[in-house]
Design a protein around this nucleic acid. Sequence first.
DNA 1: CATGAATGAGGCTTCATTCAT
DNA 2: CATGAATGAAGCCTCATTCAT
Lengths: 203, 203, 203, 203
Amino acid sequence: MSALKALREKERETRRELILTAAQQLFSDKDFRQVTVREIAKTAQVSPGTIYRYYRNMDDLFVDIFLNHVSHISSLIDEEFGRHAQCSVLRFCEIQVAYLNENMTFYQMMSHFMLGRRLPSENATRIDPIMRDLFDRLEQILRLAGLVTDSRLKAHALFSAINGTMISYARYPGRSREETRRHTMRLARIIADQFSSGQSVCG
Amino acid sequence: MSALKALREKERETRRELILTAAQQLFSDKDFRQVTVREIAKTAQVSPGTIYRYYRNMDDLFVDIFLNHVSHISSLIDEEFGRHAQCSVLRFCEIQVAYLNENMTFYQMMSHFMLGRRLPSENATRIDPIMRDLFDRLEQILRLAGLVTDSRLKAHALFSAINGTMISYARYPGRSREETRRHTMRLARIIADQFSSGQSVCG
Amino acid sequence: MSALKALREKERETRRELILTAAQQLFSDKDFRQVTVREIAKTAQVSPGTIYRYYRNMDDLFVDIFLNHVSHISSLIDEEFGRHAQCSVLRFCEIQVAYLNENMTFYQMMSHFMLGRRLPSENATRIDPIMRDLFDRLEQILRLAGLVTDSRLKAHALFSAINGTMISYARYPGRSREETRRHTMRLARIIADQFSSGQSVCG
Amino acid sequence: MSALKALREKERETRRELILTAAQQLFSDKDFRQVTVREIAKTAQVSPGTIYRYYRNMDDLFVDIFLNHVSHISSLIDEEFGRHAQCSVLRFCEIQVAYLNENMTFYQMMSHFMLGRRLPSENATRIDPIMRDLFDRLEQILRLAGLVTDSRLKAHALFSAINGTMISYARYPGRSREETRRHTMRLARIIADQFSSGQSVCG
DNA sequence: CATGAATGAGGCTTCATTCAT
DNA sequence: CATGAATGAAGCCTCATTCAT
């Protein structure tokens, strides 16, 4: 009985994952706001109606994907910590930029959710703690790097700065994916440098 | 004859301006992807069809607005230079963040054009020189601040970093416009600080 | 063995009743065409699939409810007869209008089934005898009131006329439920009056 | 200039009529709530989008059709008056029932709009004066027939009663259209009779 | 050249019904 | 026999763009 219920739960989770994956896959091909329910359904080999059994609406699905990304980044940082008992500012910057280059959708979403006026507070509630989680890690990195004053604020600043590298150069016309990757990585390193030589006057 | 032609030209320019202004005005009220051609036409007191005499499509119009913004920022920097014979990194950061706070649409567009896959190279051609112009100024600022090595790259990094402050915090749920302005300004100053205490090892 | 079968039968009947009641309850809250299978299932604490074990489809369920209503009206008339050994035309009209005011769904259904093109003859077969039953009573009322010629036809006419009061004024905009009740009741009395002062030429 | 404008106006009116006619035609084939925008568009040889240039939404279209019907009935009464300088209760009843038999959609709509809970007050505002118009005529008929007290109320009652004949028997299963017409006409005459021998006690 | 009506593909979402468990 | 997840057709409506006037 309980086993059966667990099985169902598992199946449900699997299918949810299926939809999520399908959506993300489509996102890598086009602007995420142009991906339609029907497309996602088709890609996930599921009927459009089914999607609404797992997500109340498209926005909910998008938020889910967004949160997945954030969590993923957090875990990447954790891995780094796990390996070296610390994570330098530089490493964080590299990780983050590498991730953004691989997952431009994530950046689009961030832009969409942050700049758009549509985020229903309910979704905000879901986003908040997960972002906080990420910033906790980031703050710790900065503290370990010696930036102890205003460390939260600096975490925000660093995160923002790194993200900014993408918006400006992500798809710079005429630049290949690889070139973009190299360029943004260079920028990230400069930023990291500015932030870790943090012995600056106001540090 | 030539006078008449000039008049026509003038009229054409005026109407083009009219449309542009109408669009920008609407953009300050809502997410730019939600502004419809009809709305713009109505606001500009022009028919939808007319818009297509001046812009091949919506994207072209958007690019125009985008470029207007970039030029505007350039001129703001020029003003600052005009007043003080220089422009500190801090001042640039403040100007830029203030501008972004007042013109979130611009940021949305940057995000849209940079991240989307839609920028036809033709538009890229228009964007390129104007961006170059902006970066020339920025590079100069950095050089004057003593960051002489990799100054172009650092200009990119600084610009990106500042822009990044917006995407992350622009509409952070529950934060008022004024609070956002203050927060992003704080972040901008931190970034400015990191970039101008440029006596960093790799500076 | 037979007892077990009877038990099963009983259980089945109970559940059927449960569904019916749930549906009726929902109908009193909204337009019956807006009630969904899922809602009914939820209210009846039963799965959607189960409903289809008891009713081939929604229409069948609706017919059942409809017939329940007709039977109910018949029994109300019987009560009146039981109490006073007769039922004046006026009393019938009052009973009927009162009932309709309390059960607008019934009226909606009548309208739906009678005007729509959907009534499969099979359902017609179920409806027929129960309606006949009602008309028998009504005819008797009219006969007792002295309308002996064409009494069946007049029963139809009276029934129709009374029902008509509802469609025209049921939800007259801006009128409260109580006002509607009063108004339709007034109309019903006028009709009753016309029908019982049946000393009309062609009576 | 003005002529051109008038022409446009005329064309607009024509197309509006086209859509209306298409919709009504479809209504004669099925339950009006089952008629879809796409169908109407197809029948009117117009694109779906066009319909929304003429009607804000389906409800508006439905209300328009409904009002057309009511106006039509009013004009039928006027014709009768024009011919005979009066219109007997009987004639009104015949006219009304004949009309309903020919236009069952109208009856469905009445039922829908009156019983449903959806009529936005804006539409109510459009419906009100046109119904009032009809009742003015009806009241006059009754007054001429000698029913001077409560004539408005009686107008309501008569109208309702006649309408009621339809709901009960319109599509009585197994009855042909012609049989229905005959039966409802008989009922209408009985009702007319009851109402015009109005020398009843309370007349 | 300006107009604005028409287009029609496409958007999201709902829901009666089926069917494997 | 009950379940409820899945279905997928169908619903209404929007809107960038075109084109006859």
